[in-house]
């Protein structure tokens, strides 16, 4: 079962305006940069970028290009804004959020992780203690006021929990250090972060890998994401980037 695509353009060719795309990465670490660049080139619009911990704060050049091209409708993230309030004010993304032109919806990071896991595992919703006592138990936390729907809570064994829903993206862009042609993947150190769970969650998972190997060359003991979750494979070169964020 060979899942490799001849070009990155062909691997993302069917992504249509309005798609929900999962973007892994913890700031700049583990971000699928070549897929993002191809998406910028393709120019697909009205996108919802479902993140986890600031991949677009890390991949700031890509974010600026996406905003400049007017491709983004909504971002979902636990850490979507620049760390520095003063520098954030100068970012086109934050300016668009302030103007209400792009929606930013926020969830605690562990809730983001579990929303993807639930989607991948066939669980429609779950109760979590995270966010109890904060605005996260009251309503959706978004800059668009009319979208702040009330959240449900429930007492279980004397403790309060918040109901959160699975998040199933149309596509996931994945970055792995090595993968075989059947889509088995292995990550490098902390670059794993949201990659595995987003591969589980999406309807179509497209993985860019630094090393593409023949089936059998990646030992079964070393596979971190089994190929069943991965639909398309692309070979890329190792990205070079600055780690730091503003």
């Amino acid at each position: 079962m060979d899942k490799t695509f001849p070009s990155i353009e062909e691997a993302i060719a069917d992504i249509k305006d309005g798609a929900v795309i999962a973007i892994p990465g913890f700031f700049a670490c583990g971000v699928p940069r070549d897929l993002l660049k191809a998406l910028i080139k393709k120019g697909t619009k009205n996108l919802t970028l479902a993140c986890g911990c600031g991949p677009l704060v890390g991949a700031v050049d890509e974010m600026r290009a996406l905003v400049k091209n007017n491709q983004v409708k909504k971002v979902i993230d636990s850490y979507g804004l620049s760390r520095s309030a003063s520098k954030g004010m100068q970012e086109p993304f934050e300016q668009a959020v302030r103007a209400g032109k792009i929606e930013l919806e926020v969830f605690p990071m562990g809730t983001m992780a579990e929303k993807y896991r639930a989607a991948g595992a066939g669980i429609p919703a779950f109760y979590t203690p995270t966010g109890v006592g904060s605005v996260f138990e009251e309503s959706d936390v978004t800059n668009i006021e009319s979208n702040r729907k009330p959240k449900e809570t429930r007492m279980i064994n004397g403790q309060k929990y918040v109901l959160e829903y699975a998040l199933k993206p149309d596509y996931a862009f994945i970055h792995a250090i090595i993968g075989d042609k059947e889509g088995n993947l292995r990550y490098s150190k902390t670059a794993r972060n949201f990659n595995h769970v987003m591969a589980m969650a999406a309807r179509v998972t497209i993985a860019e890998v630094e090393n593409l190997v023949e089936v059998g060359k990646l030992d079964g003991n070393d596979v971190q994401t089994p190929g069943v979750y991965v639909h398309r494979m692309i070979k890329v070169s190792r990205p070079q980037f600055a780690i730091t964020i503003d």
Binding site: S78, Y79, L81, A85, P108, G110, P129, T130, T142
Partner: peptide, 20 residues
């Protein structure tokens, strides 16, 4: 920080750590 003037913010993993 309300001085940033946004209803949304960078919550990260802080609330999960508080919960657990």
């Amino acid at each position: 920080n309300p001085s940033r003037g946004l209803f949304v913010g960078n919550v990260g993993g802080s609330m999960d750590l508080c919960a657990g």
